[in-house]
Nucleic acid binder design. Structure first.
Length: 269
DNA sequence: ATGCCTAACCCCGTTAGA
């Protein structure tokens, strides 16, 4: 008999690059963890790319914010959860479906699809890059509010941030890209300096080739030319409950995969 | 070589992703 009181919470985050194209992969992923005795309690999905989505899995409470063709994020939880917010504070005119915040067992779950930001353009004045930086600043201010309220939270998702050299196959090649730009890194540090921990990197401080994304082009997957851009950040109280964080490479090797693979976090209950 | 995949959408090419 499994002692559920001692089993950890399992949280996963996955940019599926279209939920319609990847629904069977999501089902298989959840089934695999279920059959391995580590059922997923919380699943964050990004890039749904569909305005209308059905119930993704019958065993979960589902929240989603969507738009036609682009973006879209969902949070699936075992048991009840309540919607807190489906857009990031700080810009009333921003209607892109990139942010979802729910309460689950007194824990704040925040799923993000942070803007890519390319092209950076001359002097970093590209419209998309400025939107990314502004979005990161808005995220910083919102998380600061939660920190000051001592609200325990986990932020997971596709950050479109390569945190450091170790997180990409060729730092020289990424220099100047919106995912690896000094201004992106500064915004990332601002967020971490609220007292948050990059769960994967604190568990695996020196592990190279720990990637969560491989481009479809140029045999990137076959040659392991990847980048780590999908992350879980934990507030201090949750950092104390961090048991493990791993990147599950297997779904990237399935037939017609997403270009991202899931990150899996375990927290003590 | 802002490109050698992939998906959406809407017409069978364009846009976006990272």
């Amino acid at each position: 008999m499994i002692d559920t009181a001692l089993s950890p919470y399992v949280l996963a985050s996955w940019n599926v690059n279209s939920i319609r194209a990847r629904i069977d992969h999501v089902t298989r992923f959840l089934q695999d963890y279920q059959s391995r005795g580590a059922p997923v309690d919380v699943l964050f999905l990004q890039e749904l790319k569909a305005e209308q989505i059905d119930q993704i899995h019958p065993d979960y409470t589902q929240h989603a914010v969507t738009q036609k063709s682009y973006n879209g994020v969902a949070i699936l939880t075992k048991g009840p959860s309540t919607l807190i917010c489906d857009r990031l504070a700080g810009d009333k005119d921003d209607d892109q479906a990139r942010y979802l915040e729910v309460d689950w067992n007194g824990l704040r779950l925040i799923n993000i699809y942070l803007p890519n930001g390319n092209p950076v353009s001359d002097e970093g004045a590209g419209e998309k890059f400025l939107y990314k930086l502004a979005w990161m600043d808005r995220l910083y201010h919102h998380l600061k509010t939660l920190r000051e309220a001592n609200c325990p939270f986990v932020v997971g998702g596709d950050f479109n941030v390569i945190p450091a050299d170790i997180d990409c196959y060729d730092p020289a090649l990424w220099r100047g890209d919106a995912l690896f730009h000094p201004r992106t890194h500064r915004a990332w540090r601002m967020i971490l300096n609220l007292g948050l921990v990059d769960a994967f990197r604190v568990i695996h401080p020196n592990t190279p080739h720990a990637y969560s994304f491989w481009d479809y082009q140029g045999g990137a997957w076959q040659n392991d030319l990847g980048i780590r851009i999908d992350h879980f950040l934990l507030s201090p109280a949750l950092t104390d409950r961090l048991l493990s964080c791993a990147i599950d490479k297997s779904p990237r090797g399935w037939d017609r995969p997403s270009d991202h693979t899931p990150v899996v976090l375990k927290l003590s209950r």
